[in-house]
């Protein structure tokens, strides 16, 4: 509990802002390689995207423990379940859209219902996939995974958190979905941050409004909060990196301390972080909630910055949304 509350924006800013942004998938590739050196029970599966998901590093170092399954995601998930039932700890990776959409029934039956120790680590979540366009931009993956019993759903905010998440889930027994991104993201978490499943990280609790974010929107929320602070609007930022199980305790205390909650995610506003927060608060502490995310539409081609702009996910957009929401209450 103490660690969860190691809050305050002062916790941030110890060097991480000077570091160059890094894609969470790049961090994954490196951490997985290190895990492979330490543990012989770690095995990795990929569906012909190991150069993009960065599992290729592990593949090169440990060819006997790497299984390229070809372009066959359903088989990949089943095989991963089988490897886990033989005592291995499989990490199965591909793009989020294929991992969760193409193989959803396989995840449901052989991973969740069978409660096998499979780690689904998907890259290319959200619209910042960019130029490949809508077919490759997973905007529904969190929703798909969150509705499955036994599943844990994690969306790390930056490379620091990704490293901690991968190490943590490698020691956790049970199904996990980790959503990573293609694009580089700034460092936001403290260097000494330790991720724990189900523990949100509070940067600051705002008296006026609190933004619950996950993934790349954490950095966006921090910037938006700084702008709003200048206007006299005390805005809190919470990194809800575990979307399931939700950190209900933190959420409840934040909801009690402000009159408005904003959720922000690079995902459909239906069924993701915004959905999870609304479900919990409406039953336990009803407060106004405004969801920022993709508004029930598909993505399109473009560079990530342009895509964030047209979907209203820049800090400036977030500031506008917060002001408008405040005016309504």
């Amino acid at each position: 509990m103490g660690e969860r509350e190691n809050k305050g924006q002062e916790a941030r800013g110890k060097g991480q802002e000077e570091r160059k942004p890094k894609a969470t998938r790049d961090e994954y590739g490196e951490v997985l390689l290190e895990l492979g050196k330490k543990r012989s029970d770690i095995v990795v599966l990929d569906a012909d995207l190991s150069s993009s998901t960065k599992t290729g590093k592990f593949a090169k170092a440990f060819p006997d423990r790497f299984f390229n399954m070809g372009i066959a995601e359903q088989d990949m998930i089943g095989t991963a379940a089988g490897l886990s039932l033989a005592g291995k700890v499989p990490f199965a990776s591909t793009f989020a859209v294929f991992e969760t959409g193409r193989a959803w029934d396989q995840i449901r039956l052989t991973v969740c219902y069978s409660n096998t120790n499979v780690k689904l680590v998907a890259t290319h979540g959200g619209i910042t996939v960019g130029e490949d366009g809508a077919s490759h931009q997973a905007l529904e993956d969190i929703s798909l995974m969150r509705s499955l019993p036994n599943m844990t759903v994690i969306v790390p905010a930056d490379a620091t958190e990704t490293a901690s998440v991968i190490n943590t889930v490698s020691e956790y027994k049970g199904p996990v979905y980790v959503r990573l991104g293609r694009a580089k993201v700034p460092y936001v978490m403290p260097d000494d941050y330790r991720f724990r499943i189900g523990n949100a990280f509070t940067f600051h609790v705002g008296k006026d409004v609190n933004i619950i974010a996950a993934g790349i929107t954490v950095a966006t929320a921090i910037k938006a909060a700084e702008i709003l602070k200048k206007d006299g609007i005390d805005t809190g930022v919470i990194n809800m990196s575990t979307i399931k199980p939700l950190d209900e305790k933190t959420l409840l205390s934040v909801a009690r301390s402000s009159k408005l909650i904003i959720t922000a995610e690079e995902h459909s506003i239906i069924g993701g972080l915004g959905g999870a927060v609304c479900e919990f608060l409406s039953e336990n502490h009803p407060v106004p909630v405004k969801r920022i995310g993709i508004r029930d539409t598909f993505g399109c081609s473009g560079n990530p910055d342009d895509l964030l702009k047209i979907h209203g996910l820049t800090p400036e957009d977030m500031v506008r949304t917060v002001r408008k929401a405040i005016s309504l209450i």
Partner: peptide
């Protein structure tokens, strides 16, 4: 698929 995974393990 699961049988394959077990056999590989």
């Amino acid at each position: 698929s699961v049988a394959n995974g077990m056999a590989l393990g």
